[in-house]
């Protein structure tokens, strides 16, 4: 599972990065890598079976806190 995730990410890099380098889109490259890093961490955690807290529960708590 984890190897699949890594493979997918390598695939994404192989697709996007050469074009960005050729066009010298450095800023875009940085944003891309940053986002990809976030995505990578999240999906690796998910693949390893890390239990994330429920997102909508979090929003519920937040909304109730603000309204109070």
């Amino acid at each position: 599972m984890i190897s699949l995730v890594i493979l997918t990410f390598l695939g994404i890099i192989a697709i996007e990065v050469p074009g960005l380098i050729r066009k010298k889109y450095w800023k875009e490259l940085i944003v891309f890598l940053l986002l990809l890093f976030i995505a990578f961490i999240a999906s690796i955690l998910l693949a390893m079976g890390f239990e994330f807290p429920s997102l909508i529960k979090g929003i519920e708590i937040l909304i109730k806190y603000i309204l109070r």
Binding site: L4, L7, G11, A14, I15
Partner: peptide, 9 residues
């Protein structure tokens, strides 16, 4: 590439 990637799983 992604076709292959998605088909693998």
């Amino acid at each position: 590439l992604l076709l292959v990637l998605t088909l693998i799983p």
